[in-house]
Design a binder for these strands. Sequence first.
DNA 1: CATGAATGAGACTTCATTCAT
DNA 2: GATGAATGAAGTCTCATTCAT
Lengths: 196, 196, 196, 196
Amino acid sequence: MKKSKPKYMQIIDAAVIIIAENGYHQAQVSKIAKQAGVADGTIYLYFKNKEDILISLFQEKMGDFVEKIEQMIAGKEQAAEKLLVMVENHFRMLSEDHHLAIVTQLELRQSNKDLRLKINEVLKGYLQVVDKILLEGKENGEFSSDLDVRLARQMIFGTMDETVTTWVMNEQKYDLTALAGPVHRLLVNGCGNAGH
Amino acid sequence: MKKSKPKYMQIIDAAVIIIAENGYHQAQVSKIAKQAGVADGTIYLYFKNKEDILISLFQEKMGDFVEKIEQMIAGKEQAAEKLLVMVENHFRMLSEDHHLAIVTQLELRQSNKDLRLKINEVLKGYLQVVDKILLEGKENGEFSSDLDVRLARQMIFGTMDETVTTWVMNEQKYDLTALAGPVHRLLVNGCGNAGH
Amino acid sequence: MKKSKPKYMQIIDAAVIIIAENGYHQAQVSKIAKQAGVADGTIYLYFKNKEDILISLFQEKMGDFVEKIEQMIAGKEQAAEKLLVMVENHFRMLSEDHHLAIVTQLELRQSNKDLRLKINEVLKGYLQVVDKILLEGKENGEFSSDLDVRLARQMIFGTMDETVTTWVMNEQKYDLTALAGPVHRLLVNGCGNAGH
Amino acid sequence: MKKSKPKYMQIIDAAVIIIAENGYHQAQVSKIAKQAGVADGTIYLYFKNKEDILISLFQEKMGDFVEKIEQMIAGKEQAAEKLLVMVENHFRMLSEDHHLAIVTQLELRQSNKDLRLKINEVLKGYLQVVDKILLEGKENGEFSSDLDVRLARQMIFGTMDETVTTWVMNEQKYDLTALAGPVHRLLVNGCGNAGH
DNA sequence: CATGAATGAGACTTCATTCAT
DNA sequence: GATGAATGAAGTCTCATTCAT
């Protein structure tokens, strides 16, 4: 077997699988170590403690996430179009990685308040992407000029999150990506200067 | 001594306080018993086990919640108006009970999947209220006739939930009830037949 | 329903049933009270504590036992004949009360050392009956003159006990009373002055 | 530090001492761990749970027991002689390990029915040794040809067990090994073809 | 770098017994 | 005498983390 991956990512990938398949509270360090093919103690050469694995997991995966979203909306002109690309890819990327979807939507939320606050820190990068789209939309007249950016951002996140979570809880039985269009329309309507 | 409160509700109220102040994982049965002013063993005369306290807590509090919302929207004619009353009271009721807000938005989500599934059962009553409003709105022309009720419901819940959670995470520093109007406008826009 | 039985015996009979059906460690006072048709607290008007129920149970039932045995061997002349009557009735009485058999052979042995010492006190009455038979047998030449009465008594008890316990553990599937004859022969042989 | 004893046997030996000195129900895992000189958690690296310690204890000690008995009777010709060696060594081995005697005769019997059934499984090895002796005795004419092997075996076990238990309950005040001869005579008489 | 055996703190739940009614 | 709601002490087992090899 070739050691293509550094152990750091090996452990993070193992954590995603173990948490998805066993649940947050049954994801013992020893299980993760076994899945990663290393000794328990080795984990602590790469991570400060168990919480650090989870934060790192979220940073790595969510970092990819935001990076890809940013690349994809870079070429788009309109705010509404950018929003569509964002929703589409948000849904698509989680559709393509069932383990990750379970971990981010269900399991990681069982972490304690401290960990969740740190996860929120990581999410700020994503928030900024949305805020930028919303500001552009307000400036170029696509969105209502008196739109409350913070609230609109909470609507967008809340709606996407609720949609994905419901899909995961229904055991991913239907096609999530097909919902991107309709969800996008709801959100654009919400932000839009409808009455004008 | 007058039996002012039955012990059942005494224990549930104690659980809300203890969980809010100590966090889900630091809410030992002995702490709840002490706060309720009963012996540890007494808890088990009223609840099957610790999880049963939490489910019952959610049922009692959320039952009240849905009941009150239903009463308040009963007198309203328009779907949009009903939605406003719902958002206003959802925000107001959690504003008025800071402990309950912390418990429902942050702490109870740390419970395991089984408990969360049971909590979802309880939430179905609320879902049905929203669905009824949405259907009425579609029928009387307030909302778009091709509105996807399930997605719209997810938007409404997702947005309210995200808004309240953000407020709780910011330590309830600003006035949540003031956001009811703007949030309502976003949601009605989202559901509305804006372009028509 | 006529209160034919005083509550004292009512509780003891309930204890036999509950212990036989649930096992020693699952025989809570509250279960015994329910079976007896009295309140938990009532138990403590008739018995000092739980252990007292068990000792009393053994005393009452074993008292009957010894009394009946004594009556039945009273009319017999020979020691060997008395022994036969004893074994026959020991086996028969336990055969006729399956609950009592389970309680004395399996469940009551799970009690702690103190309780077992007290049970042994109760058994002394039985021991004396056996000793008397053995002495008679030695005097009239039926048994070996150098028979060690204490050891012979341990053989008799040990053999009867092991035989009954094995029968109970095999779920009382075969006819225990049919074994009285062969067992008696083993014991009489053991005590006998074979070589003379 | 030299690993003189594997921890597995260290823990079993500690369990024998703790149970003998404190009684079955006062033999907490933490006490056993302390006696064995390991941490509480270490117990669970070697045993599935507390019951597993007790089963293993019985298997290890009784395994030795049966093995030694078998070796010792291997050189003997006559069934009666084999029986004598068995009784002698049964008594001697328990005489030499007072702790073990208390544990097997008094404390382990307080275990629940499940554990006792597993203990019976272990005892089957011993039963077979006895059965073999009895069959040999019947074949070579030492014992009665119409001897019921199962009943005879129950007599032998029951008598030895009752004798040892009585000795333990009398706080091992007299010499158990001295009883081997007389007990053996009782048993051989019992099995013998006395009247022929 | 890597290992994995050992550590030890911490909490849910049961049930015999009491005592105010 | 009878009730039964309330009490509260006590023990098994898990698992993140360490450190000698």
